[in-house]
């Protein structure tokens, strides 16, 4: 066990865990930020996507001792009033079915739009290909990203 100081959603947290503990489980089990989901544990499904200094990363595959001073943002900290353009678009298109993958989809989509504010269909398809939606809401996710792109 070792003490780590990590910054999540603008707040600093001290946690005592094994250095190999993935950020995903630090968030879920130690900080009780359960919006970030476990899907595969091997960075194949995207359910655990968070931002590290604004870039989308798979939190299941990044151990806590690699974080250092980098800032983590989770779905809980994406916006103060649930009014990020991507969240608004998700609401407008009523994207979710079961909803389990959607936090990861939203975090990936926001990072995609911050890098590429006007993505083509192909940019969206490629940029979102790491996020599985088992309910197959892909049509709606794509449409919502296009709506969000107009309003970012």
């Amino acid at each position: 066990m070792a003490l780590f100081n990590i910054t999540v959603n603008g707040s600093s947290h001290e946690i005592d865990v094994d250095p190999d503990t993935p950020i995903l489980w630090v968030l879920r089990d130690h900080l009780h930020l359960v919006g970030t989901k476990y899907g595969c544990g091997i960075a194949q499904c995207g359910a655990c996507t968070v931002h590290l200094n604004g870039a989308a990363v798979r939190s299941c595959s990044i151990p806590v001792n690699n974080i250092g001073n980098n800032k983590i943002t989770t779905i809980e900290g994406l916006s103060e009033k649930a009014n990020h353009a991507v969240q608004n678009a998700w609401r407008e298109h009523d994207v979710p079915q079961c909803g389990y993958c959607q936090a990861g989809q939203i975090m990936n989509a926001t990072a995609l739009l911050s890098q590429n504010p006007n993505p083509s269909d192909q940019d969206i398809e490629n940029g979102m290909s790491g996020n599985i939606c088992r309910c197959c809401t892909y049509n709606k996710i794509k449409a919502a990203i296009k709506t969000a792109a107009k309003n970012v």
Binding site: H32, L33, V34, G35, T36, K37, Y38, T74, I75, E76, L78, A82, Q87, W90, R91, D94, P96, G99, Y100, Q102, A103, I106
Partner: peptide, 23 residues
């Protein structure tokens, strides 16, 4: 008529909803 998912706010803000979120 089309009515939005009653859990949409919880889903898009990451509130505990699913079995795995049980503490």
């Amino acid at each position: 008529t089309s009515r939005g998912n009653v859990d949409i706010e919880s889903i898009i803000t990451g509130k505990p909803l699913f079995g795995i979120d049980t503490k």
